[in-house]
């Protein structure tokens, strides 16, 4: 019983206090959004141009899609991943360590766990925003074939929560801001390359295909690709469940690590 109570307590910071932390970040975002979002959008479009229009000319159609169509949903997923990962690593670290914003907030009725959840919600917000904008651009380029793509933001919420949390776990651990380089090299970049964004995984050896199943981004890409081409089936539930379970399982970790880091 005691253990169950403890377990539930990790999910209780999803509350109105956490929303106040989100509100603080949104107020800052309102001042800086132009520069903030521009980078998030320009880069994925460069990828799409170089790989789609450049490399794509030399690549055969994949599963009936042009190469540009094939990679477009993956570009949406990866740029949304980058947005969440960057927000809850570098940006959160600056707020926590250099600006001492967390310390300022926990002196008010808000506690540290709620600060962490507020940060995760903000990372998710930025992730959903940049992914949705890019999906819009891709649709305008005629690369989206089905109205199912309107469900993109729902998938991006899951994506945003996953990568905000993974990044926040690192923020709870890394001694110095430079150490985030490991996070991006060891976690984010492999995710970017091996989640069926650029090529169908069945060209890889069996073992690597199975390993890809462990990557959250793989499930996000599968969902977004199905939505953009309108190939929606009950099987997709399985990817959704994978992501939800992953989110719930790791949810206590960012809170625990941040408490261990800041409160001696």
């Amino acid at each position: 019983m005691q253990k169950l109570k403890k377990l539930v307590s990790y999910y209780s910071p999803v509350n109105r206090w956490a929303l106040k932390v989100l509100a603080r970040n949104l107020i800052v975002f309102r001042k800086t959004w132009a520069t903030n979002i521009a980078f998030n959008i320009v880069e994925p479009l460069l990828y799409l141009a170089a790989l789609g229009a450049g490399l794509g000319v030399m690549v055969e159609d994949i599963e009936g899609m042009s190469y540009t169509q094939f990679i477009a949903p993956g570009i949406v997923a990866t740029s949304a991943m980058w947005a969440a990962a960057a927000e809850c690593s570098y940006d959160s670290f600056v707020r926590m360590h250099f600006q001492k914003i967390y310390h300022a907030i926990v002196a008010t009725p808000i506690n540290l766990e709620e600060v962490v959840v507020g940060e995760l919600l903000y990372g998710t917000f930025k992730s959903v925003l940049s992914g949705t904008v890019i999906m819009g651009v891709i649709a305008a380029l005629g690369l989206v074939l089905s109205p199912w793509a309107l469900f993109t933001p729902v998938v991006l919420v899951l994506n945003g929560l996953v990568f905000s949390q993974i990044a926040m776990i690192w923020t709870g651990i890394v001694p110095k801001i430079d150490n985030f380089a490991y996070f991006f090299t060891l976690i984010v970049t492999p995710m970017f390359l091996f989640s069926e964004v650029f090529f169908p995984l069945d060209v890889l050896p069996q073992i690597l295909q199975q390993l890809a199943w462990l990557l959250p981004l793989y499930h996000v890409v599968a969902l977004l690709r199905a939505l953009t081409i309108g190939l929606v089936s009950a099987e997709l539930i399985y990817h959704v469940m994978w992501l939800i379970i992953f989110i719930l399982l790791i949810f206590p970790l960012p809170q625990l690590l941040m408490r261990r880091r800041l409160i001696k």
């Binding site: 106040k20 603080r24 800052v28 600006q99 001492k100 914003i101 310390h103 808000i110």
Partner: peptide, 21 residues
């Protein structure tokens, strides 16, 4: 240690903090 919100103005610092309460 001062932990004011450097990304906000003087007044906004007070308003945002009021929001926490």
């Amino acid at each position: 240690e001062n932990n004011l919100d450097l990304e906000l103005t003087v007044r906004e610092n007070l308003l945002v903090y009021a929001g926490y309460y």
